[in-house]
Design a protein around this nucleic acid. Structure first.
Lengths: 222, 222
DNA sequence: CCAAAAGTGTTGGGGATACACCCATGA
DNA sequence: TCATGGGTGTATCCCCAACACTTTTGG
């Protein structure tokens, strides 16, 4: 039992669904695949899990390699394991999802991919493997999660106005929110604190806020 | 790329946290481990994922082998992948959790385990590997999930009284519920339907109910 | 007639929703 | 002074929680 076993085993990979907001739309980071049956297709970035790293570490490494970012919101989503999800080999994908501020990202293509870029969530077309399913599920989880957490700390700049925050919520939830009620909820959640005011706008200056914590916090909100 | 690769890869296993209620307490199905550094310890049942089965299929197979049951509530929980979680080998565990009616279960020990039995959730003591963490997380998810789903269809007999259902909720949530409010919520959820009455009790007969669906359904309740 | 569990209605409070107007600034 | 977005208060409704007594049966 303790010797090396010869039983074949599936390969383990992590895939990362990385969301950001660009021009009032949710975007996902996608890579163009160079080799194999899906060459030319777009898919979410991913890679094999090494023997000396945990799943979380593998996901962090993937995120760092592709975006240069650390310390962003990154959470395990689900593990996808259909037998035929990759026609070439038996691969189990442990999917993660992350939120980033795209202004902080310097995209870097590695040898494995032909290209890497942000694509609006609506209009990615058919993705490689089962990646449409993975992205859809990530979106579902995201929509739920923002109702009771502060995870947008990872998507917005350090300081932001309440209107900006509300816009992100509206984009993600795909519906308009009442400004007054939104403010009441956010304030009563205690998730944010004041952080100055804007200047130089052609209208009344707005207060700036920042999240009290840069780690996930759970509350009830919506 | 398409040839067999020689890169070492973690082994993939599924572990199943199987809950039931016995004598007003939540119990978990545990197996006594025969070999290795945790020999003699108890842990949740699990096994390697085969090359020709999906993760879900592996979990179903595990459940069937240990309990003889099919078609019960079984859902993927989380994947655990710390490097040192098994001192002998690098093993990724995709954990599932299930709810069963223990009266329908015929426990069967397979060669791999010395013993298998139900143990009350409080008082399992220290389990093998990271199985305490896995069981704790499964319980957390269970407590949440019953607030907005019908998954107890899998734990109760086909027909049950509202008092029985309420008892299961109280045991799981570890708190008393108001009988009148409980009934209102359950009825308004539309999850159950009438299914006869009890007879031969030394008190007023109660109506019997059954779940409208034997597949997971989502509603808002608690 | 007694024990045991089943079953049922009403009230009050708090949180959510809906809604419209004034404010401060730069140009 | 005007255009632009920032910022605020209140009335209503509905849902939830709290609460106690009557009903039906077997023994």
């Amino acid at each position: 039992m303790s010797k090396k076993e010869e039983i074949e085993s599936p390969v383990v990979a992590v895939d990362a669904v990385i969301f950001t907001v660009i021009e009032n739309r949710l975007n996902v980071l996608l890579t163009k695949i160079k080799y194999g049956p899906y060459a030319g297709s777009w898919g979410v970035p991913g890679g094999r899990v090494r023997m000396d790293e945990s799943l979380d570490e593998a996901a962090k490494r993937e995120l760092l390699e592709k975006t240069g970012l650390k310390n962003v919101y990154l959470e395990q989503l689900y593990s996808f394991g259909r037998v035929d999800r990759d026609p070439r080999a038996r691969i189990i994908s442990v999917a993660y999802f992350a939120l980033v501020d795209h202004n902080k990202v310097k995209l870097r293509t590695t040898g494995k991919y032909e290209d890497i870029k942000w694509l609006p969530l609506k209009g990615t077309g058919k993705l490689a493997y089962d990646h449409n399913e993975i992205v859809d599920y990530a979106l579902f989880r995201l929509k739920n999660k923002i109702k009771y957490t502060n995870i947008f700390y990872s998507l917005l700049p350090e300081k932001f106005t309440l209107s900006e925050l509300q816009r992100i919520y509206e984009i993600t939830l795909e519906k308009k929110l009442d400004k007054r009620n939104f403010r009441k909820k956010i304030f009563s959640s205690g998730l944010i604190k004041e952080a100055g005011v804007t200047v130089g706008m052609p209208h009344r200056p707005s207060k700036l806020y920042s999240f009290r914590n840069r780690k996930p916090v759970f509350v009830e909100m919506f």
